[in-house]
Amino acid sequence: MAFELETLRHAVRQHGCVARVVVAETVGSTPREPGAAMLVWQDGQSGTIGGGELEHRAAEEARAMLPAGQDRECRHALGPSLGQCCGGAVVLRTEVYDAPRAAALPDTVIARGPDEMPLSVRRLLADARGQGRPCDVQRLDGWLIEPVARPETRLWIWGAGHVGRALAEVLAPLPGMAITWVDTAPERFPDNPPDAITILPATRPEQLVHHAPTDAHHLILTFSHALDLELCHRLLSHGFASAGLIGSATKWARFRSRLGALGHSSASISRITCPIGDPTLGKHPQAIAIGVAAAILSGETAAIGRNDAKDSCA
């Protein structure tokens, strides 16, 4: 687990004052591990520390803390006091963030605790920040230390139709995701898109391809076959980690022919997979999103789709 700093900052921008509740310490059997966190604001919340009565009470207490803006830690025995079956105990740390405080957080490792920072913590931070050594969520001499999450998967979703929306909803909560979502106009996107997604409306989306990192993954599913083809063409010229195209066997055969005519080799074209997701799960937008998410979680991002395309109307 790691501190989802960009998610916190995005929530503060959207909702104002936000409380972050993090599992700081565990003893015995508990729903979640140290570092699991949720964000709470006046009329909502995101993330989870394990659900059940513990989460319900923690959210209520965090919401009550928002006006005062103070931090606190509290130990909860899950069995006796909350009636949860786990039987262990957790220490929850609740911190209230406004925009200035969230902006001031360091972007490598976040440490906080009582009194003056001990030498052990200073040494750990020096190693992590100065020498780039990774560290885990931990307690050290009474201080809570959390590394800041780094995006492990950069994903660009091209298209905000039914499948694009399903993909955004399913993939946005996954840890380590940095999602950029592109379509032709602001009204193409939902009114309340998932937190921490970068929305890019562009009259000519294909012109954004050169802004994408060459290690990004791409899912192409716009309303236009012509735009889909142009995106494939530009990505093949630009470079990418993986690319998936929604479509049928007929569409993909036509695209392979046209991409070949544009000068791309068969080996290069074969790096694009079509259809995306797992066809055995069906064609429902959420089923496609689940298939893509499973591929990402299993580390098979080079095969976010399968090349055993059968005809569909996509």
Rank of each mutant, 00 (worst) to 15 (best):
P34M: 06
P175F: 07
D278E: 05
T153P: 11
L281I: 01
Q286A: 15
R258N: 11
G47P: 03
E55Y: 06
L5M: 07
S248V: 07
C135Q: 07
L200P: 00
E6M: 12
C86R: 04
L235R: 14
W143I: 07
D311F: 04
P118S: 02
G83L: 11
H225T: 03
I197D: 01
V22T: 15
A243G: 05
F255E: 02
R256A: 13
C135P: 04
L200R: 15
I296N: 02
P194T: 06
L39P: 06
V163A: 09
D278N: 14
E300R: 15
L39V: 05
A202C: 12
K283T: 12
D215Y: 10
G51S: 02
T7C: 04
S120Y: 06
S248R: 08
R32W: 02
E116A: 14
Q138W: 02
V18F: 01
P193C: 08
V292W: 03
A241Q: 10
T94R: 15
V109W: 06
E4F: 06
T7I: 13
A302D: 13
R57L: 09
Q42N: 11
A216H: 01
C232S: 05
S265Y: 00
G113K: 04
A293E: 02
P194V: 00
S81R: 13
G47D: 05
I197N: 06
T273A: 08
I157A: 09
A202I: 07
L5R: 11
I272P: 04
G83P: 05
A64W: 01
E146W: 15
G35A: 09
P114I: 11
S224T: 11
I110V: 15
P193V: 07
K310Q: 13
R9P: 00
W41K: 11
G305K: 01
R32Y: 00
G28I: 04
V292I: 03
D191T: 14
L227W: 06
G87E: 02
R75A: 12
E73N: 11
G263F: 08
A216Y: 04
L174V: 03
I269V: 13
S81N: 08
S270A: 15
F189Q: 10
R32Q: 14
T7K: 13
E25Y: 02
V182M: 11
V27H: 12
A111C: 12
M1G: 10
